[in-house]
Computed example of a mutant assay.
Amino acid sequence: MTFPIERHRRLRRTAALRSMVRETALRADQFIYPLFVTYGTNVKREIPSMPGVYHYSLDRLEEEIRDVIDAGISSVLLFGIPEHKDAAGTSAYDADGIVQQAIRAIKGWAPEMLVVADTCLCEFTDHGHCGLIHHDPRTGIADVDNDSSLELLVRTAVSQAEAGADIIAPSNMMDGFVAAIRAGLDEAGFTHIPIMSYSVKYASSFYGPFREAAQSAPQFGDRKTYQMDPANVREALREADSDVTEGADMLMVKPALAYMDVIKTLKEQFDLPIVAYNVSGEYSMVKAAAGNGWIDERTTVLETLLGMKRAGADIIITYHAKDAARWLREER
């Protein structure tokens, strides 16, 4: 009988052997759980396109924070739905805005909780874009004005830091946003606050459920003039390199599932922590398939998150965080 030269199956024979030689591991303390906060009283409203994800008013937020802690999650990412929207997104940098209120509340309930503040204007503008709109009188074309938008993004970041945010996470994709926010934070005395930059954010179809959740769909046009073309990876390196030069502390790739190659490329090229955002559309596809009995939710979620880790993600932002953390604890 001819035998194989190598017996790869020897190290797969038992669960203990497989565990011993496992190359990649998921940990709950590497998850960040996104939360949507809103005005009102006694609001816990499920988002139709994101089963299991809710809008919370501040009086219902504490119970969710306690559940997050119980699951073993130590970090949350905040998005806010304001009472008032206008062309300049003034609620984003209001010292008493919904995100600022939520930050202060969470740090009061759970000082050890790491609070990440999404820094953008799209949820707060009446036009749904991530900056100020400029109308070109010659062509009649409206587009987001980069440099004037930076001023408001800096004001937003500083107000979030003043409220107690531990990390500023700018998601706007304006050119120079990291440098502007770093300078603004430093000038305001927040040299110790890191920036988790949405360095590589693609103009993706996977954001649909989030736009419903954050009520941030553009009211005209799209975001392709400032978010990245899904076809490009060299451009991702240029974007990330700019952010590193400007002072970013962490680099994010968004979305994650269709961009594993980009995660791997950034991991190989830069020595900063790499963050993968497992976005709303990725989450909702799994929930829909599991709800129809087509896949097993638990094993599919853990395999997907493991793939992101294997690609090079050090940190994963995911709406699956609470469930995944509990499943990992059960496996120990």
Score class of each variant (00 low, 15 high):
D67F: 13
I133V: 04
R45K: 15
A213K: 09
M196R: 06
V262C: 12
H8V: 13
R10E: 08
G307K: 05
G189Y: 15
D241C: 07
D29C: 12
A161W: 12
G164P: 12
S284W: 07
D70P: 07
A142C: 01
T90D: 00
G189W: 14
A324Q: 01
E123T: 02
A276R: 06
A110D: 04
E235Q: 08
I5N: 01
F79C: 03
V279R: 02
M50I: 15
V144T: 04
E239P: 03
F124Y: 11
L132H: 02
G189I: 14
P194N: 14
Y33S: 15
Y54V: 06
R332L: 00
R332N: 03
R238A: 00
V301K: 09
L152A: 05
E83C: 00
A325H: 00
L58P: 10
V200A: 10
I103F: 15
I167L: 10
D145R: 01
A71E: 12
V154P: 06
I32E: 12
M1E: 06
K85D: 00
E112C: 02
E112K: 11
L61D: 05
A102R: 07
S91N: 04
E46T: 15
T41W: 15
P230Y: 06
A102E: 08
E303D: 08
S216E: 06
M285C: 07
L58G: 11
A313R: 02
E330R: 02
N292S: 09
Y277E: 10
D241R: 03
A15V: 03
K287A: 13
D143G: 01
L153K: 02
D145I: 02
F177I: 12
G52T: 10
A163D: 07
R182Y: 10
E6H: 09
M173Q: 09
G291E: 04
A324L: 00
S171M: 12
W109L: 05
G247H: 03
R234W: 14
V53L: 06
D126V: 04
E151L: 08
C130H: 08
A313M: 08
E151I: 11
V301N: 10
E63N: 10
F220P: 03
T265D: 06
A213W: 04
E63F: 09
E303K: 13
T265C: 09
D261Y: 03
G293Q: 00
A313N: 05
W327C: 02
T299Y: 01
Q269L: 06
A214Y: 08
K287D: 08
M50G: 12
L78E: 10
I32M: 14
N146S: 01
R7E: 11
R12A: 14
S159P: 12
A87R: 11
R104P: 01
A161I: 03
A180E: 15
F220R: 07
D86H: 09
S197L: 13
S284V: 04
I5Q: 07
R22T: 13
L77V: 11
S197V: 09
R138T: 07
E297Q: 08
I32A: 10
I47L: 07
P82E: 08
